[in-house]
Design a protein around this nucleic acid. Structure first.
Lengths: 155, 155
DNA sequence: CGAAATATGTCAACATGGCTGACATAAATT
DNA sequence: AATTTATGTCAGCCATGTTGACATATTTCG
């Protein structure tokens, strides 16, 4: 079991390391990446939803979100049904950056899955999902499923 | 592929989250955990090796290492062959804590592997290893193999 | 032997990104 | 009309990363 503990550490380190150089050049860090990623994946999400996912305080989120908005990567629109909400969307510029960063990671993952062979994607998905807290698992899988659906609809 | 990007994020978040409460009560953080874990796994390792693994500066390491030494979790012994080296070892107290934290993580991983079914361990191992930078992969696998061997010898 | 390289430690200053606590505003709900 | 909700913001603290400069002991090399 120790091997998985350590492999998870090393794999995650390299996995999140890829985008760092790109981000550094823009004066951003990993916190910006996470926000941009999830807003891109779930356009129109509420601030509260993002706080739930990231599990950070609104003050911490506010800091990086403000920078992303100020520099034109993210916009906030008043909710139609509930005008207290500030729904989050990426701009074209934001989407371009999000996709660039995601591509770095999908390249790594794709290569890894190819190395392992057929069935690897499903096996990895099952394992990682099973590692997630039982309480959150359904919510996470639901989030992913809905994000995939929405993306397919947008094309 | 997006699903794996996100599952990796959520799985890692929960995986490293387990030990946090225990550590917080001792006034330690994740940095201390990483140091303690690797020293426990590889008793007698050089400071330089630890720096390589963690990929942090000696100043950052020095800060947490000093605390672990001051509070009796880790000891440093002069190298026999090379007396410049300060080889790192966990004390009994350090080993107890390292094992306690590792147990939290192995419980989670074991449960996950059981959920997925037979072959899950090997599949997870292969996938995670393949995600690691090609340059580092051999070194990491070697580290793990040698740590496993040494542990078996010690019993 | 003496010079250079190596292993480690340390001081100071700074950046990022977490946190708490307190308070403000607008809109929805009761 | 009062309360709750969604969000934002100010101020300050903490953990942990960074760079740069310098110190010391020991080993290695010419």
């Amino acid at each position: 079991m120790w091997d998985l503990i350590e492999l998870l550490f090393f794999a995650y380190r390299d996995f999140v390391g890829d985008p760092d150089d790109v981000l550094a050049k823009l004066g951003f860090g990993r916190a910006h990446h996470r926000v941009l990623h999830f807003v891109n994946r779930n356009p129109g999400m509420k601030v509260a939803d993002l706080l739930d996912i990231l599990r950070i305080t609104k003050q911490s989120l506010g800091r990086v979100l403000k920078q992303l908005v100020d520099e034109g990567y993210v916009v906030q629109k008043e909710g139609e049904r509930d005008r207290r909400q500030r729904l989050l969307f990426v701009t074209d510029k934001g989407e371009a950056l999000a996709m660039k960063l995601a591509r770095l990671q999908t390249v790594r993952i794709t290569r890894a899955l190819d190395d392992v062979g057929p069935g690897a994607h499903e096996a990895a998905r099952k394992f990682l999902a099973a590692v997630i807290d039982a309480d959150d698992r359904a919510g996470v899988l639901d989030f992913i499923a809905r994000a995939n659906l929405a993306r397919r609809r947008r094309g």
